[in-house]
Design a protein around this nucleic acid. Structure first.
Lengths: 373, 373
DNA sequence: TTGAAAGCGATACCAG
DNA sequence: CTGGTATCGCTTTCAA
């Protein structure tokens, strides 16, 4: 059935050279004549050589270190991303991965420093959240140039040289939000507001476009207002949305694309329009639960942070282990959370955090055992 | 930082015995005195021994064979499940897995035979779709008893001794369908029909209960009719649903929980009620596309067959490789497909089938190369 | 019942 | 620049 795979020795024999030279040639280590190197590469290709990862890992014993640079966050989003990464790392068979978490407290505090320290520490790969792609872009370029692959989560850093991105699909998110809005309002006329971080964030601009396109195609009775930007500042989210709530008399619905749904909901309540609005939010965290439960928030679009973390880790690991990565750009389909299935997702989240605690306890007990020895 | 992991030699040294005995004890191979066996097991535990899988794979070289027993299917569902399994198998680093697909054409044709032949061939594990749990249950029991782990996909076989199940979460599916139905109908009064395979299928009964619970809690204006059973037969689906369509004058919506949405849609059209019904279906396949596009189907609940396949494979592989499996029971959150995000999912499916073709071509060319050698 | 030793395929080092 | 070889941790076989 299956022919035995080609080994280094096979190549060496076929060429009448030594296994050491073959190895050096394949890894372009110093000390190989360009001629033999060429012959080896050629032969490796014709023989269809693929390294045996088990043997490689067994003999080299070097553990790959990756740095996970993320924001502390105001919601549980980043905790879930990190949990996904941790879980996926644990499920890798060859336990040759070490993860260092570099978590910074604010959008404009410590992001660059964390990146710099990761590079300085000589990690083998980085998973990062480029909160301000323009700022982090050059750093990512520097890392990539130094041979350190970088995977972005949640937000892309275009033209930065990053190995890949994992995020939620913007088309799927924006469109489903619009579809739901349209169906929920069922022919009613009115205006729709949307809030986002900043139109400079590619993902937000794309979601916005998708939302608008779907709304215009299928629900012409609804009119989209100019997007409200919050720049990640709660007071801006509150102030700007409240202004719209008070000025726009025929407002029928709001789609909150950012984390900052609570300030927007507060503004709606304070402006006395919460009752008559159809609200669709983004992501799922404890402060939002009562609003969903009561029906004030009709639905929330869950960006699956844990799945994003898992996927990012797999992507990086695949690249580090095999040198090839399947897909540089992964866009996940979001989940939809409403009153009825809310418990399913909450249950899942709490299960996760319980598992995390067990993991951490296990780590601690390992440590104790170690100190004791 | 990290203490070096415990090896067989460490255990042997600590006990003043040989590495061979330790190995035999750990695998309860014949030829170990119960006494030393006990001591080894004890020491292994206190030292926190975990086998080095790279070394194991490198030296043993035995490839694990698993059988995938599934239905041919009337929609693309099972193709996607198989694709997921294939993809996940390919992404495993240690390429020590061989997959045999046993696909049978009908619900009551070849299911048992496929299972029997898998056992007879001595596979190391089985992934199966127990279309009739009562019938397949004993077979699963037999396999488990013989040390062959079985993972069920899509439908559970309770009390059969199966290692685990992967399916879509029934609570999440049923509830979201009810929530959407309620919101889409927005206060309108009327009856809701649902169609399913058979109340004897646990998953269907659970979905049905979840649907009913959510409907009753939040949308008391809607009344749920007695479920329509189709038993996987298209003519039954058509006939039984048409009868309801003609008899129930205040019917407002239908939730189709099975694959058989087309016959139900045909019946609605023939009974001249399609226009005024809010229809929610299950899964996504090409015949359904025009209905979604036109809005006749308001939403469809996609059970993520590919993700089910991937998860099932991982579960089996984890067990086979490490002997422990994290979670025996995985329930995935379904995806929601509507007009706006339809293209996202279609694009994904077509990408997948394109990738499949490439894979198959590659397999073919390997075969050619092999024959040529 | 037990111990000893030969691999598995790659890495890394040392001698030529 | 190149060839040889010890080594990683485990499985497996052969002696004792």
């Amino acid at each position: 059935m299956g022919k035995p795979p080609t080994t280094l020795r096979d190549i060496a024999n076929a060429l009448g050279t030594s296994i050491g030279s073959v190895h050096r040639a394949l890894h372009d280590n110093p000390g190989v004549s360009p001629e033999t190197k060429e012959r080896v590469l050629q032969m490796a290709r014709t023989l269809g050589y693929r390294p045996n990862l088990a043997a490689r890992y067994l003999s080299s014993k070097k553990t790959l270190r990756i740095s996970v640079n993320t924001l502390k966050g105001t919601t549980s989003f980043w905790d879930e991303v990190r949990a996904g990464i941790r879980e996926e790392a644990a499920s890798i068979l060859l336990e040759n991965m070490e993860i260092e978490f570099r978590t910074y407290p604010h959008l404009d505090e410590g992001e660059e420093e964390a990146f710099e320290s990761a590079i300085a520490d000589g990690v083998d790969g980085i998973i990062t959240f480029p909160s301000r792609p323009q700022v982090l872009g050059p750093w990512i370029g520097r890392a990539s140039h130094a041979g350190i692959p970088v995977v972005c989560v949640a937000t892309d850093a275009l033209h930065s040289g990053r190995l890949g991105v994992v995020s939620v699909d913007t088309l799927a998110s924006g469109s489903i939000a619009a579809d739901l809005m349209g169906r929920f309002l069922r022919g009613q006329e009115g205006s729709i507001a949307i809030t986002l971080f900043d139109m400079a964030i590619t993902e937000h601009a794309e979601k916005c476009a998708a939302f608008e396109k779907t709304l215009r195609s299928y629900y012409p009775n609804l009119r989209l207002l100019k997007p409200i930007e919050d720049h990640g500042v709660e007071s801006e989210a509150y102030g700007n949305s409240r202004k719209v709530f008070e000025e726009c008399s025929n407002l029928a619905g709001v789609y909150v694309m950012t984390e900052a749904s609570i300030p927007v909901l507060n503004a709606a309540r304070d402006a006395n329009v919460l009752e008559r609005l159809t609200v669709i939010t983004t992501d799922l965290f404890s402060d939002l639960v009562p609003y969903i439960r009561s029906g004030a928030v009709a639905a929330t679009i869950y960006q699956r942070p844990k799945a994003q973390g898992q996927t990012a880790f797999r992507m990086l690991h695949e690249f580090l282990a095999e040198g090839v990565n399947q897909s540089h750009q992964v866009a996940l389909a979001p989940h939809l959370v409403m009153r009825g299935n809310l418990d399913f997702f909450l249950h899942r989240q709490s299960q996760e955090s319980a598992k995390e605690q067990v993991d951490q306890q296990r780590e601690t007990s390992h440590q104790l055992a170690r100190d004791f020895a």
